[in-house]
Design a protein around this nucleic acid. Structure first.
Lengths: 143, 143
DNA sequence: GGCGTGAACGCATATAGTTGCAGTTAGGCA
DNA sequence: TGCCTAACTGCAACTATATGCGTTCACGCC
């Protein structure tokens, strides 16, 4: 299907090398189609290639983040990684019950524009984690 | 001066105990008047009371965060803690040069209101870290 | 003032993630 | 096709932070 081609091109364009480890790591992430942790990626990759080290996974993810291929979010607990596709989104995390819900990009668009206009700052607002209390836990707390 | 009184009251109201360790930790933070790391607090506290353990510092900071006395921000590197006072603020962190600049609360107010109205979600937006590229690094990158 | 109990303590240990280093390899070029 | 070098890898050691556990101590109550 050649969906690897785009990854290869992005790496080469940035002067980086295409290695079997990197391709396995990035393809595990691409095909997961959801948030995954570094540990899950490592486990997945090791099924095909057992000698991969955790530090390689972290280094590859860091490099891929800088190229905009991958996004990282800290939702409490382990960091979550996701292949960057069209639908940028954010998360609301309830510190009462731990529930994580999705928030679409429109809520943060205005902020990004304002930061660029007022401060010349190009914010990487592509995967935010916002902590707080959901309506259910808020109700429960008031009692 | 009795500026400890407020801390003591907040701890008691939450059914928590007032111990010398906690008072030292929280007062180190209160009097720092700036962001400090857990390690800096530990060092400071140990000057007066050498047998304090790092885990006590982390546990105390976690408890104080939950009471709203303290806020934590991850600006890259170690977590930064700060005594919560009136002026809530956020940070813009340039991933090019590492520069950290302050951003006042007004930029995030609208977001908090929208989340509450649309989702019933009470966001803890009191100390955000927004990564991106500052204008200088952006200019340099375009060349 | 003494007592009981649950919260907090210090210690040891575990976990996520990072870094320095020495050896290996991708890929541009002759 | 073979060489060269910078980028990448695996390993081991390290840092920041969290957690389980047995002991201690703050503090409400008699």
């Amino acid at each position: 299907m050649g969906c690897e081609a785009e990854t290869v091109r992005a790496l080469k364009r940035a002067g980086q090398k295409v290695t079997p480890q990197r391709m396995l790591i990035l393809s595990a992430l691409r095909h997961a189609g959801r948030h995954v942790t570094a540990a899950e990626i490592l486990e997945d990759v090791r099924r095909q290639y057992p000698y991969v080290d955790a530090s390689t996974v972290y280094r590859t993810l860091t490099a891929a983040k800088e190229l905009g291929l991958v996004s990282e979010a800290h939702l409490g607990g382990e960091a979550q990684f996701e292949w960057t596709r069209g639908d940028r989104h954010h998360h609301l995390i309830c510190r009462g019950c731990g529930q994580v819900s999705r928030l679409d990009n429109s809520y943060l668009d205005g902020l990004a524009t304002a930061l660029l206009e007022d401060h010349g700052f190009a914010a990487d607002i592509d995967h935010f984690a916002i902590f707080g209390l959901c309506s259910r836990c808020r109700g429960r707390q008031e009692q």
